[in-house]
């Protein structure tokens, strides 16, 4: 439950995988809206990236507990100690609602705490916090972690790595956008259009990492990872090609 079959080297591999191979912004395409809105300056991007790392790490851990003790399959076992029979209860359908409630509540609390104790940090970070509630990367990472049923520590490493990967990507893209702002672009393509093209090129380079698997525990036969859309289409393509 805490460590599963993972060794320390697996955890390191998982970290690398979350940051580079399955980069949330450039390989999973989550959190794009926030990225497009806030990446025209590098300082903004850094502030937002830092906030995402903090929120994603904490809410990822909290949601792991929610899944493990409330919504997962047979997760309500602890109620038996209170004498309540829970064998027929499955709260899996509540998962979305509880996850987003946990994220929203945590963000709200963090905002209040930061505002109270560190006004300077609030000035730099607080502006981005409301944006983060609706950042798909946060909910996406929590849902991915659940579908892959990570134990506690790998889950922690995974959500932290995802946050760092998102930060890395938005910082890289913001640096390029700062240069783009002063370069000559077709008038109709200026602004958001060229940003799309540039992000596409960037994510093509990151897609060079796909297919490398670092995170599976060694010596254990791991069930197949949930098929993401890109990988399923890839295998479709291979199958269809072999037909001809």
């Amino acid at each position: 439950m805490w460590m599963g079959d993972y060794t320390l080297i697996n955890l390191f591999g998982l970290m690398i995988q979350a940051i580079f191979i399955e980069n949330f912004l450039l390989a999973n395409f989550l959190g794009i809206c926030t990225y497009l809105a806030c990446s025209s300056r590098l300082t903004t991007a850094n502030g937002l990236g830092m906030a995402v790392v903090i929120v994603l790490t904490v809410s990822g851990v909290l949601n792991w507990f929610v899944h493990q003790f409330v919504t997962g399959n047979g997760a309500l076992f602890w109620l038996q100690y209170l004498g309540i029979n829970t064998s027929g209860i499955d709260l899996n359908f509540l998962e979305f609602l509880l996850f987003i409630a946990v994220i929203a509540a945590f963000v709200q609390m963090l905002e209040i705490v930061i505002e109270r104790f560190s006004p300077s940090l609030y000035m730099s970070l607080g502006l981005y916090l409301p944006l983060i509630t609706v950042n798909c990367a946060i909910l996406g990472a929590c849902l991915f972690a659940v579908t892959r049923s990570y134990p506690f520590l790998p889950n922690l490493v995974y959500v932290f790595g995802s946050g760092v990967g998102w930060w890395l990507a938005i910082a890289l893209l913001a640096a390029i956008r700062e240069k783009l702002a002063v370069s000559k672009v077709l008038p109709s393509l200026k602004g958001i259009g060229i940003t799309f093209m540039m992000s596409g090129l960037m994510s093509l380079t990151f897609s060079g990492f796909t297919g490398i698997k670092l995170a599976n525990p060694t010596g254990v036969k791991v069930e197949k990872l949930p098929v993401t859309i890109s990988s399923s289409s890839g295998s479709d393509l291979l199958r269809e090609r072999s037909d001809y």
């Binding site: 395409f29 060229i194 799309f196 992000s199 596409g200 994510s203 093509l204 859309i229 890109s230 393509l237």
Partner: peptide
């Protein structure tokens, strides 16, 4: 078949192109 079209990054180019045409 155009294998690039299967990869998600091409969505960036297509939507970028659509925005371009729209403008």
């Amino acid at each position: 078949n155009f294998a690039l079209m299967v990869n998600p990054p091409v969505g960036f180019f297509l939507i970028g192109g659509l925005i371009w045409m729209y403008n």
